[in-house]
Amino acid sequence: MNRLNHQHGVGLIEVLVALLLLSIAVLGFSALQVRAISATDESLVRTKSLTIVRNLAEIMRAYPEAYVTGSGTAFTSAAASTLNAVPTIQAVISGSAIETVTVSGKTISILATGVNCLSTEVETVDGKKMPKQPCSMDQLAARDALMVKKIAADEDIKLGITTCPGTSANAIQQQMCIITAWNDTSPIMSDSDATACTTSNGVYKTGSHCLMSEAY
């Protein structure tokens, strides 16, 4: 009888120990689930970023002679040799506008209203009828850049175009770097800015959420 009295509560202790071990296992499993979800989200954003980079690179190749001067939402057409002229696509991506910009006095828009640079008329050239081009090359480049920028903004992805490390000339025909960034990372290369994607030499910063790709 005394032996039974000494064993009172042993079963309860065993249950508590089992619950403790189960709790530790569940916590570990939960942590793995959180990490897995985070990795999946990061992979999804990177896939979207790659698509945006490819689209933007193709647009850059399509308009190798589109240059403008100015900043913000208003730009003026300029030749590549003009002082302070920059590639139109780089200027639009770096500017504040997402849906509308003004190039050479014409407001270019990706909205249903405004000039969207789509041909709706025909003209006769050398006796042949062809679509009338309502926009210049700079204006077309601005429109296409706005479309990619809007897609990126809808996905909470920030865009940036800059000269790649080791490249001095700011010409779209030469090597340029496209940077996509998300979360708290900025699409820039900087040694002093803690939120920058990479250093000025193009080395990824620890903890940055971004992707840098070269375009030619």
Rank of each mutant, 00 (worst) to 15 (best):
P131W: 04
T124A: 10
Q90M: 13
I110H: 05
Q139R: 12
T69E: 09
D193K: 10
P165T: 07
A142G: 03
T199Y: 00
I161A: 09
V122N: 14
L83F: 09
I151K: 15
M189G: 13
D154E: 11
A91C: 01
A142R: 00
T76A: 12
A80D: 10
E121I: 04
T100P: 01
T113R: 12
P187T: 03
D144L: 06
M147S: 11
M176V: 15
Q139T: 10
K106M: 13
D156W: 05
E155G: 04
K129Q: 14
A169E: 15
V125F: 11
T167H: 02
I179M: 05
E123S: 11
V148L: 05
I161N: 06
S96D: 13
E121T: 12
V86E: 13
M147F: 04
I188M: 02
T198L: 07
A141F: 04
L83T: 15
E123N: 11
I98H: 01
T82C: 00
G95R: 00
G127Y: 06
V92Y: 02
D126E: 12
C164H: 10
T102P: 00
T69L: 11
E155W: 11
K158Y: 06
T88S: 08
I93A: 02
I188A: 13
I172T: 14
F75V: 06
V125A: 08
M189Y: 08
A181H: 07
A91W: 00
M176T: 15
I179E: 04
S81M: 06
G202F: 05
E99H: 09
A194R: 05
K129R: 10
A181T: 07
A181N: 07
A152L: 06
Q90D: 08
I108G: 01
A85C: 08
Q174D: 14
K149V: 07
I151V: 15
V203P: 05
A91K: 02
G70I: 00
Q133W: 03
Q175W: 10
K149G: 08
P131S: 05
T199P: 00
V203A: 12
W182L: 07
V92E: 03
G127I: 11
K158F: 07
A85R: 03
Y204M: 09
T82Q: 08
I178F: 04
T73I: 11
T163W: 08
A97G: 12
V103G: 03
G72E: 00
G114E: 02
K128S: 14
A171Q: 13
T100K: 13
S136A: 02
T167I: 14
A171C: 03
C197T: 09
S104W: 03
I89A: 04
Q173P: 09
S109E: 04
P187F: 02
M176Y: 07
S168G: 10
V148H: 03
E155V: 05
I93M: 07
K128M: 14
V125K: 11
S168H: 12
